[in-house]
Computed example of a mutant assay.
Amino acid sequence: MARQSRQTFGSSQVTFFDVEALRGGIVAWGDRVADQVFDEAEEIVKDAAVEAVARVHAADTKTGRERAAKGKGLPGRHETGLMAEQIREYEITRSKREFVGRWGWLRVKRDYFDCQEHGTRHLAGMGALWGSYVHAQDRLWAALSRGRRR
């Protein structure tokens, strides 16, 4: 459908496409989708931090099994609970155009925790942050897809 038309003696002009109006409409649509997705993204980040804690508790190691067999704790990687409790932290930074969610060991010296997460030559990595990240990313893509269809 023509947005604008004009006819004069000996010529006709029709504007089918107004780039600025289109650009404004796309930006407005993007802002609406961002608001909806950002709200959901906050929940995704909070849930990812909780999931990472659960993954620490579920991580299985020989040392953990031996500790549990001696009656000195649970079999996962949570001898003192410090590593799991400190992974629970999250931060959210949000502006009109950007959302950044972080979770994990944000305020502690992480060398030991990084070895536990990624593993070493002698220790299998637990992948608590990685697993929660992959799950959060899948949920975020689903939220974006729902927003795109609105």
Rank of each mutant, 00 (worst) to 15 (best):
T8K: 07
V14F: 00
V14A: 02
T15Q: 03
F16L: 10
F17S: 09
F17P: 12
D18H: 07
A21L: 04
L22S: 08
G24R: 15
G25R: 14
G25W: 03
G25A: 14
W29D: 14
W29C: 08
W29G: 11
G30M: 11
D31W: 00
D31Q: 15
R32P: 10
V33Y: 06
A34Q: 07
D35C: 03
D39I: 02
A41T: 10
E42Y: 02
K46M: 11
V50F: 04
V53L: 04
A58C: 04
K62R: 13
T63P: 03
G64M: 09
R65Y: 05
R67L: 11
A69L: 02
E79H: 02
G81R: 03
L82T: 08
M83H: 09
A84D: 08
I92M: 01
S95F: 01
W103Q: 05
L106G: 11
R107D: 15
K109H: 14
K109Y: 12
D114K: 04
D114R: 07
E117M: 06
H122Y: 08
A124M: 11
M126Y: 03
G127H: 09
G127L: 02
G127A: 08
G127F: 04
A128N: 01
Y133Q: 09
R139C: 04
W141K: 14
A143W: 06
S145D: 15
R149T: 12
